[in-house]
Simulated scan of single mutants.
Amino acid sequence: MASSQNPTAGLAEKAATKLAARKRFEAVFPLLVEELIEYLASEGMPREAQEWYRRNLDYNTPGGKLNRGLSVVDTVDILLCTEPGSGGKRTRELTEPEYLKAAILGWCIELLQAYFLVADDMMDRSITRRGQPCWYKVEGVAEIAINDAFMLEAAIYYLLKKHFRSEPYYGLLLELFHDVTFQTELGQLIDLITADENHVDLSKFSLEKHHLIVLYKTAFYSFYLPVALAMRMVGITDESLYKQASAILLPLGEYFQVQDDYLDAFGKPEVIGKIGTDIQDNKCSWPVNVVLLHANAEQRKALDQHYGRKNAESEQIVKDIYVAPNVNIPGKFEAYEKESYQMLTGLIDQVDESKGLKKEVFTSFLNKVYKRTV
């Protein structure tokens, strides 16, 4: 049977293509590490410092899903190599220099992610990250991780200067990284002062706060930044197109995080690959904020007593409230998901491809996250 008629063969082919794309992207990172270590050597840094930095880079940057970095490459590929209005019909392949530039920008986002995570794990006193000890928990690291986080961020600007200084859009790349870093840190601030694990206070929670946290802590750097970097690289200069991209990608990022919050409470650990901890960690998540709007007095009292408590019994009491008939988080999420999909497809339909932006950029993002289970 031909693969086009065999869904299993089709899925296997997609998986193989995805794996090949990841491996090609991963192959660029060691080259960037060598450039950074060579810089340290040129500055007269001792071998011990060079090896520490190499270990920091290798331990904290690769190893995740790499979705943000790969999204830069995918977006550049769509913008340069597909026919407008064709739903992704290819016209050519990226040249090696084009691919390398896109991959470097992608790894710069992954370095930004690594910087955030090293710092975030210390603030949250987390124990593990990506199946291994958090960097500050590694023997001999401890508070040095603070400086290591700064050095992960500094790598971004060294690589941008080395590879893009002669490009007309170099200053705009710097502006994007600086702006999005500040926005993400603002989101982290709101999260930290709203949802203190040691002082549970649900009166600080609201859907408005959740919206701000999600928008600033996740949507800007995870959804808007990859696309905006790709747009700058391919030479899109019309600022109205960046506003249009933002108007689609920020709500898409919010939908993704609401979905993530829902899966944390209702996803099966063997499917999503982790055990949800939002309830025990006192997270200002979407389900609890919806519950606060619909809970009766008895349920609200139970939430105050049990949300954010580090035990399975309290967690189960909260989950039981989530599925109570007057609350019905699964039903409300289903309605939210349907409404979000309709809104996002409507915004994507408004993209005028004659100006250089392509609908496929956004539909590819939406198709990856719509009704996902992992």
Rank of each mutant, 00 (worst) to 15 (best):
M1P: 09
M1G: 12
A2F: 13
P7Q: 08
A9N: 10
L11C: 06
L11R: 14
A21W: 02
A21Q: 14
K23V: 08
E35F: 03
A41G: 07
E48V: 13
A49Q: 15
T61G: 02
I78Q: 09
L80A: 02
L80G: 01
E93G: 04
Y99S: 00
K101Y: 00
C108V: 01
Q113H: 15
Y115E: 02
V118T: 10
D121Y: 10
D124A: 05
I127G: 01
I127W: 08
R130A: 07
G131E: 09
W135D: 05
W135H: 13
E139K: 14
N147G: 14
N147K: 12
F150C: 11
E153M: 12
I156Q: 12
Y157L: 03
L159A: 04
F164V: 00
E167R: 01
L172V: 00
F177H: 14
L186D: 05
L186E: 11
I193M: 12
N198M: 09
E208H: 06
L212I: 10
A219I: 03
P226F: 07
R232P: 00
V234W: 01
I236S: 02
S240N: 12
L241G: 07
A247V: 01
L249F: 11
L250I: 15
P251K: 10
Y255S: 06
D260G: 11
Y262V: 12
G267Q: 03
I279C: 06
N296H: 11
L303D: 10
Y307P: 09
R309S: 07
S314M: 07
E315S: 11
I317Q: 13
V318F: 11
Y322C: 02
A324V: 02
P325A: 08
N326D: 15
P330E: 11
F333V: 06
F333Q: 10
L347M: 13
V361F: 04
S364C: 00
N367C: 01
K368P: 00
